[in-house]
Design a protein around this nucleic acid. Sequence first.
RNA 1: GCCCCUAUCGUCUAGCGGUUAGGACAUCGGCUUUUCAAGCCGAGAACACGGGUUCGACUCCCGUUGGGGGUGCCA
Length: 482
Amino acid sequence: MSRTVRTRIAPSPTGDPHVGTAYAALFNYAFAHTHGGQFILRIEDTDRTRSNQASEAMIFEALHWLGLTWDEGPDVGGPCGPYRQSERSEIYREHVKRLINAGHAYPCFCSKERLDKVRARQQAEGSTTVGYDGHCRAMAPADAALRRGEPHVVRLAMPREGQIVVKDLLRGEIAFEAAGIDDQVLLKSDGFPTYHLANVVDDHLMEISHVIRAEEWLSSLPKHVQLYRAFGWEPPVFCHLPLLRNADRSKISKRKNPVSLNYYRRAGYLPEALLNYLALMGWAMPDEREEFSLEEFARLLELERITLGGPIFDLEKLSWLNGKYIRGLTVVQLLERLRAGLLGDDYLLQVLPLIQERIETLEDFLDYGRFFFVGDVAYDDQALKKLVPKGRTPQDTAKVLKTLLDEHLDPLLDWQPERLESILRSFCEAAGWSPNELFMSVRVAVTGRAASPPLFDTMAVLGKEVCRRRIRRAAGALKSIK
RNA sequence: GCCCCUAUCGUCUAGCGGUUAGGACAUCGGCUUUUCAAGCCGAGAACACGGGUUCGACUCCCGUUGGGGGUGCCA
């Protein structure tokens, strides 16, 4: 009870920095501060194929922008490091060994094919439990030792019967039938731990007192609790936050909502307004005041008061709040905000070289460079016509743009001219479009005009978020054409 | 399919057995204003349904329905 409060945010660096990460970080940060504890940043990069350095850097950057500073983390260090899971492999391996020796875990040599087959059969039979069937659990330790050289994973030996009762701060006790939970993989065949293992081991070793995370983890809580038991550790307090939702109530996603923190930053939302809005999701101040600072939030947050209905992330209300914050600034402060972004030297110095050769008077600058500074661009009839190459239909064009965006541009984190060019060029072949066709279409989508500075440089300067939303919008506009 | 969570205006929420069910966004109307915003004032708008418990349920319990999440060698 008197234990120091230590909370953490544990993002996985596999994409653009996510608004859900900021949401969880906000509550963890605030709770730690309410209780004079520490807030820790841990990078969960155990998925070697998806984890990526650019993503990690963007997460740091985005959280710094928001002002959610951490007391311990990969960049600032701390007594419980390293804070990057990829650098802790030895720790996990040792802990797995302990579990195996105690009979709480076992090696599993089942092939992917067998696993798929088992799952397919269970599904076909309408079996009540779908998951690993425990095939290798019966293997004698001596036999397993003999096969040590073969590729294998290590699984957690879950109790076969009875109930696993877990406790969530907001929901109270929740009982799961042990029979319905399969033996989770703890150590992958590449030697890296799964989330389940790594998060339990690290939370324990890093002395995390309160695990405040998204509700999507609630169903794996019994596995985590079982791990704490197997290790003989005292589990932390668990508090599962409601999931942010799209307007249709599904879990917030990039197809239906801007989810990248970079979007909000570029669009000109003030970090304190975003944080304030996020704090309103599932939380209300005791006096119902809706505008408050991070400090006030950190002073008054009580986890018990969090509401559990999944809140819809409402851009309209966010924008209203943001407007309030902007109006609350002095003119000089407003100028500073502008200079920190769209009207800052950094950005202007990127834009100007692309415009310089194309203007004759300084006042041409605004007219010509307009699309570098606005959010959406308008597509007039002429632009709409240029968007669709001769001989192509609006529908085809919309489809090509969407595919380009979703499958090729969206996963790109290193948003540089060279990368963009190679992606667009190879996409031409895949789509069966000529570079002329595709590049003009993308140019118009991204700038609103048929004439612009070199496409890839322009896209690079505009940034991923702006390109994304404009291409998306262009595709949408095309679809509504007859 | 199975497991788990969840349910107050369109949206975010207050409520914690007895209230004309309150506030905010959005919407609509008015005032202000050269215009547009902003600001101010006002209006419409909710306890999903069915059983209990109780003198009394939005509040407690059970069920139904709706919504969500999970069911990966992803987190």
